[in-house]
Amino acid sequence: MQWSTMVATAVGTVLGVVSTLVADHIRWNRDTSERDREALRTAFTGYLAALAQARDAFSRTEPSPERVGKGHVAIGEHGVYGAQQQLELMAQRPVADMAGRATLSVLDFHDVVLAGHDSDSAEYVHAWRAARENRQALIEEMKKALRRS
Rank of each mutant, 00 (worst) to 15 (best):
H72P: 02
R135F: 09
V95R: 02
S33L: 13
A91N: 03
G12D: 05
G46F: 11
A54E: 01
R67C: 05
N134C: 09
R67V: 13
W28K: 12
Y47G: 00
A115E: 06
H78T: 11
R35K: 12
V17N: 01
D36L: 15
S121Y: 04
V17Y: 07
H126E: 15
M142W: 05
A23G: 08
F58D: 04
Y47W: 03
L87K: 02
N29F: 09
R147S: 14
Y124R: 07
T20D: 07
L107C: 04
E34C: 09
H110R: 01
Q85Y: 15
R27I: 05
G79R: 02
G69S: 07
S149R: 14
D24R: 10
A122P: 08
R147C: 07
G46Y: 06
A49I: 10
G12S: 10
R132W: 10
A83H: 02
W28I: 07
Q84D: 09
R93Y: 13
A54R: 00
R93K: 12
K143V: 15
P63K: 02
E140C: 06
L107W: 02
G12V: 05
A10N: 04
Q92Y: 11
R129F: 15
R60M: 10
G71C: 02
R37Q: 07
Q85T: 08
D56V: 03
A49V: 13
G71Y: 01
L40E: 05
A23Q: 04
I26C: 09
L138Y: 06
P63A: 05
A49D: 08
I75T: 06
G79M: 06
S59N: 10
R37C: 03
A74W: 12
L21E: 07
A54D: 03
L104I: 10
I26V: 14
A130K: 15
R93L: 15
G71E: 00
H78L: 13
R35V: 04
W128N: 12
S64M: 14
T61P: 03
A74G: 02
V11I: 13
N134L: 11
V112T: 09
M98Y: 08
A127C: 09
L51K: 06
E141I: 14
A99E: 03
Q2P: 15
L146T: 04
W28T: 09
A23K: 00
A91T: 00
D97I: 12
E34W: 11
I75E: 09
A50D: 01
F44T: 00
M1Y: 13
T45D: 07
Q136N: 13
V125C: 10
E123W: 10
Y47Q: 01
M98T: 11
Q84C: 08
L51F: 09
Y81A: 03
R129D: 12
H78N: 09
A99R: 05
A127I: 03
V22P: 01
E123N: 06
